[in-house]
């Protein structure tokens, strides 16, 4: 991660009484096409992922609360739809975390490229 950092650009919003050196040109950085691409790439993954997650997750209490009979249907022995759907939430969360980490590794490279473009 050393490539991200340039101690000379250390800027602190808080109380440490360290010298505040020259600032990067944030506006210029924000207007770079590479940075805009990074943001839209992130949004393209994160927004649908969050919508899917909220719909999939909130479907559980809604179905359990309002369609209990459907959820009580036994699938395998005493194991019913409700329990399997609840269990599937764990795997949904793990799979989503796995996908996010894979995609985000690419964003790390893109972010490094945005910063290095300035030198």
């Amino acid at each position: 991660m050393a490539s991200y950092s340039d101690p000379a650009m250390h800027n602190k919003p808080t109380s440490d009484s360290e010298p505040v050196p020259s600032q990067p040109d944030w506006q210029e950085l924000a207007s770079r096409p590479a940075f805009r691409d990074l943001l839209s790439a992130k949004a393209r993954f994160i927004v649908p992922a969050l919508i899917f997650f909220m719909v999939f997750y909130l479907a559980l209490p809604i179905l359990v609360g309002y369609w209990p009979d459907m959820m009580k249907k036994k699938i395998w022995g005493e194991v019913n739809v409700a329990y399997l759907f609840a269990l599937s939430q764990f795997f949904m969360a793990w799979i989503m975390a796995f996908l996010y980490v894979k995609v985000a590794a690419g964003w790390d490279k893109a972010a490094a490229a945005v910063i290095h473009g300035q030198e």
Partner: peptide, 18 residues
Amino acid sequence: GKFDELKVRAHTGLGSEK
């Protein structure tokens, strides 16, 4: 005006605490 700065910091880690 500082939104650009926060955006760049939040999404690239530039200037973050080491």
